[in-house]
């Protein structure tokens, strides 16, 4: 397990290497929040609810859904494998004593951690600066099921993208398969 944790750490460090990227990620996180707040504020002007959602409920949904969609970056796995096989450098993963699938999952985890940091920053800004009353479901079982579904969904996407990437060894081109997956 230690080796995979170190792989994740290494890829997290690669994300932190580019200061401009870090800065602009922070900037866009804040500006996204601001635009969402303003836009939804306009929609909810003079109304308590829209289609059953309150203003805070809508913003809570927005935070959670954008949070989860940010976490789903497994497409990078299939494209990385695809590129590496195509340009003949995939073997660099084959000659080291790690499980290749584990390596890519750890890589994904490291990169996701980077964006997770910004999502937590966004959550902080939402809650403390804009005074959003975060709407929770009160039933712990529903929360737990939701979290489990999210984790399983992420794991499934990682697996799917890994195996699609590996298919490059057989078919040399997986663009169609990736397109079907996206649909």
């Amino acid at each position: 397990m230690q080796k995979y944790a170190e792989i994740a750490r290494a890829y997290l460090k690669t994300q932190l290497a580019w200061r401009a990227d870090v800065f602009f990620n922070m900037l866009f996180t804040v500006t996204r929040i601001l635009f969402a707040y303003l836009l939804w504020g306009v929609i909810f002007t003079g109304k308590d609810t829209v289609s059953g959602f309150t203003f805070h409920g809508m913003l809570s949904y927005y935070i959670v859904s954008s949070f989860l969609s940010q976490l789903e970056m497994s497409e990078r796995i299939s494209s990385e494998i695809f590129q590496r096989i195509r340009n003949g450098t995939f073997s660099k993963y084959m000659v080291i004593p790690v499980n290749i699938q584990g390596y890519f999952m750890a890589m994904e985890a490291g990169i996701v951690l980077f964006y997770l940091a910004f999502d937590f920053l966004a959550a902080f800004v939402w809650v403390w600066v804009f005074r959003i009353e975060f709407v929770w479901v009160s039933d712990v079982r529903i929360l737990a099921c939701g979290a489990l579904m999210a984790i399983l969904g992420l794991l499934f996407m990682v697996q799917l993208n890994y195996y699609l990437g590996i298919l490059t060894l057989k078919y040399e081109g997986i663009g169609t398969l990736l397109m079907i997956k996206t649909i």
Partner: peptide, 19 residues
């Protein structure tokens, strides 16, 4: 190359120590 272009040699060596 096994080196990470964005990282230092020390970072890569630490990774390979664990691997």
């Amino acid at each position: 190359s096994q080196l990470f272009f964005e990282l230092t040699a020390n970072d890569t060596l630490r990774l390979f120590q664990k691997i």
